[in-house]
Write a protein that binds this DNA or RNA. Structure first.
Length: 750
DNA sequence: GACCTGCTGATTTTT
DNA sequence: TCAGCAGGTC
């Protein structure tokens, strides 16, 4: 089959809206693509068709949400056309593509080409340093929380000067101070954080029209995947690039927007039609993925979100099994019930690799893992700490970063005493004082350590040796291969020796990981003789765990619901369907946040093709303390006709399910009139639910108490005595909970 | 300056 | 519950 036949046989197999979306070549197009409606197929076929129609691959910019998605897209296009063409497409994440552009154009922004990209951890340690240096006394505020605010502010495109003006509370004023210093130091360190990659690209395009023009001409065709999750700077960048030719194609689904907390604006979908009034709107509403039971269940859930674009997602697929809702006595039991169920499924000819377990928080994976191991179920976890975020790897990368960017003080501070070389807190204080007094970078101050009077003779020698080593190897790097320089340099720093010893002593795999990294670098050098170590470093700084891991062999996949976006599995388990955990409790449970949680659940449900299991535990250990959980209100929102609630519900927990009248605002499940409330406790009248023997000496009915985690609540029942004294408390934050008084840190409210 | 220990706060989600 | 860190000791 030649290329033409291949493309047209694919196009012929598409439904009419899909065909339109793939073959309209010019002009703005907005596709609202429901879950499982063949979005990826449309994207790849469209790009193949564009190239077939005469568009140069290098004129196409395809932005995806993960590196993995872009790799897969490129691979598929390669299969249809050829790999040379596919590899010339500019495909990648926003962050990776713009990092690449910023590298080319760095001098416009007064940055060196080899600028360093700071990840979250790097940013946090820089902020920690700033807090210390500015002597800010802020109790209860962590560097991470300040960075969170700064990141949010940056995503809203509020620059330092503006933020300083609008900061009103004392906390905001502190943030403003840190924000200003943070940006200064990023610049001094010749570094950008993740948000800067977007903001600086925007600055580049808006302040240098010639540069913008160049990229407008280069990217004559732009495609954006997961458009609902773009934030403001991302949208502005796309808009700037596309306004010259308007060949902008965006695909998204407002019902799957789950990154609002990171600044994503669903509004962008609506703005699109304002900014590109000529845009064609195409809806993909036929779902090819799931059984009608699963799809309709998802639909019955998502109608509870009032604000959404109207669509009618339907399927021709068979109705299939009902959705199993499994309740477990506690979190351990939940994990083993899942493992058991999986083993049953395996006997029915389902492969491990057909199954995924999804959960709300990474912390949940621990118990699940333990139980899968007990039952010998092979699994693979995606997400969480990526290879490149491991301590030993970050240490090595810290050294390598110094080779290309000596101004990177975050990396310098990270490695200066790793392995211990006698430069501790006191010496560092002297060096930093000298650096700031003379407006030197930390590295330059160390190079001049002879001039620092306060410094001990020994420290002077060590710092001098240290900086000389860096100098020597960074010079070598200019005319030698990575293979020749990198291992020798790392050996010279002593970091190899240190981890070899740790590995033998503590039976860890750290040295192995380092070997793997060094091999990877050497391979990179061989495969890309024209690229430098700084190319390598930039590339890996934007990789997540999910990007680096392949689905391997016959194993179950485990990941958070967020990570699961864009994937599909024949069998899906969603664990931890409990109030407080999913939807998760936050300090302020706003309507918007609940709607986002609901969309997240929607994403989870629609990952399943054939079978879906929803599990919850009645008792779960959180923060080392067991609490009684009630089923998630989301479970009641799904049309009961699609559910098969497990039999053990008859052994109902000994407390009432009814939402509390005076307290909980969010605890009240949103029942649709056509969805009868599953009265799962029908065989237990309310009044029998708890005996009211109160331990007069400590707690009384109606007492207002403070819980360390759930906050304020009112005691509505008291059960048991002494060690097994159980309190039923209506919390403002999570509604009704049962608490073991002996374990909970409760404070009486006067 | 390195090492030990007791305390505290963490559990959203990620480029 | 537990990891990471501040503060103290050698």
């Amino acid at each position: 089959m030649d290329i033409e036949d291949r493309i047209f046989s694919i196009i012929k197999s598409l439904n009419p809206p899909q065909q339109e979306a793939t073959t309209v070549v010019n002009g703005p197009v907005q596709v609202i693509a429901g879950a499982g409606s063949g979005k990826t197929r449309v994207l790849t076929t469209r790009i193949a068709h564009l190239i077939y129609s005469g568009v140069e691959p290098s004129e196409i910019l395809a932005l995806t949400f993960t590196n993995k998605a872009s790799k897969e897209m490129t691979a598929r296009i390669g299969q249809i056309l050829n790999y040379q063409a596919a590899n010339r497409i500019w495909a990648g994440t926003f962050h990776s593509i713009f990092a690449r552009i910023l590298r080319y154009e760095a001098e416009y922004l007064n940055y060196p080409r080899d600028f360093t990209i700071y990840d979250q951890e790097d940013s946090n340690s820089l902020i920690k340093q700033i807090i210390k240096d500015l002597k800010l006394s802020i109790m209860d505020i962590t560097p991470a929380s300040i960075h969170g605010v700064i990141s949010r502010v940056k995503n809203d495109m509020v620059f330092v000067d503006e933020y300083k003006n609008i900061a009103s509370t004392s906390f905001e004023k502190v943030v403003a101070q840190v924000y200003e210093e943070y940006q200064n130091r990023l610049r001094e360190n010749k570094a950008m954080d993740f948000d800067d990659l977007l903001l600086n690209t925007l600055v580049l395009f808006t302040q240098f029209p010639d540069v913008l023009k160049e990229y407008q001409d280069r990217f004559r065709y732009i495609l954006v995947d997961e458009f609902q999750d773009t934030n403001r700077p991302q949208y502005r960048i796309i808009w700037n690039l596309a306004k010259a030719h308007s060949n902008l194609f965006v695909v998204g689904d407002d019902a799957q927007s789950i990154y609002r907390w990171r600044g994503a604006e669903i509004k962008n979908i609506l703005n699109f039609l304002k900014d590109f009034p000529a845009a064609k709107q195409i809806r993909l509403e036929q779902n090819y993925r799931s059984t009608s039971t699963i799809l309709n269940a998802a639909n019955s859930l998502i109608v509870n979100n009032p604000n959404q674009i109207k669509k009618n997602l339907w399927t021709n697929n068979e109705s299939g099994n009902k959705i199993d809702v499994i309740d477990a006595d506690d979190d351990n039991t939940e994990a083993s019930l899942i493992a058991n169920k999986i083993m049953q499924l395996i006997k029915q000819d389902i492969k491990y690799s057909d199954i995924a377990i999804l959960y709300r928080t990474n912390a949940q994976s621990l118990l699940l893992e333990r139980s899968l191991r007990t039952y010998n179920v092979p699994y693979q976890i995606f997400g969480g700490l990526s290879f490149y975020q491991r301590k030993e790897i970050k240490d090595v990368i810290g050294y390598l970063r110094l080779l290309v960017n000596k101004n990177d003080s975050v990396s310098l501070l990270r490695v200066i005493n790793e392995p211990p070389r006698g430069i501790g807190k006191t010496s560092l204080d002297h060096i930093m004082e000298y650096a700031s007094k003379n407006r030197f970078s930390l590295f330059d101050a160390m190079s001049n350590s002879n001039e620092i009077q306060a410094l001990q003779a020994r420290a002077k020698i060590t710092t001098k040796n240290f900086t000389e080593t860096i100098h020597r190897y960074s010079e070598q790097l200019e005319d030698s291969t990575l293979e020749d320089v990198v291992p020798a340099f790392l050996e010279a720093t002593g970091i190899f020796q240190m981890y070899k010893e740790i590995d033998t002593r503590e039976m860890t795999e750290r040295w192995q990981n380092i070997e793997q990294l060094v091999n990877d670098i050497i391979l990179f050098g061989k495969d890309n003789p024209n690229q430098s170590i700084s190319d390598y470093l930039q590339q890996i700084s934007l990789l997540t765990d999910f990007d680096t891991k392949e689905f391997e062999g016959n194993k179950i996949a485990m990941m958070t619901l967020h990570t699961a976006k864009g994937l599909e599995f024949p069998v899906v388990f969603i664990a931890g369907m409990e109030k407080g955990l999913f939807p998760i409790i936050r300090s302020k449970n706003s309507k918007e946040e609940e709607e986002e949680e609901r969309r997240l659940f929607y994403v989870g449900i629609t990952r399943a093709e054939k079978r879906l299991f929803l599990t919850y535990a009645k008792r779960r250990a959180r923060f080392g303390e067991y609490t009684y959980q009630s089923p998630s209100n989301f479970l009641y929102e799904i049309d009961i006709n699609f559910l098969n609630w497990s039999d053990s519900r008859k052994k109902a927990p000994s407390f009432s399910q009814s939402p509390n009248d005076f307290y909980s605002k969010s605890a009240k499940p949103n029942f649709k009139p056509n969805t009868p409330k599953p009265n799962i406790y029908a065989d237990k009248p309310h009044s029998d639910n708890y005996s009211q023997i109160s331990d007069e000496s400590t707690y009384k009915l109606g007492d207002i108490v403070m819980h360390s985690y759930f906050g304020e609540g009112k005691i509505s029942a008291i059960n048991g005595q002494g060690q097994s004294l159980k309190l039923t408390i209506d919390f403002k934050s999570v509604g009704r909970k049962q608490i073991m008084a002996a374990y909970a840190k409760l404070e009486r409210f006067k």
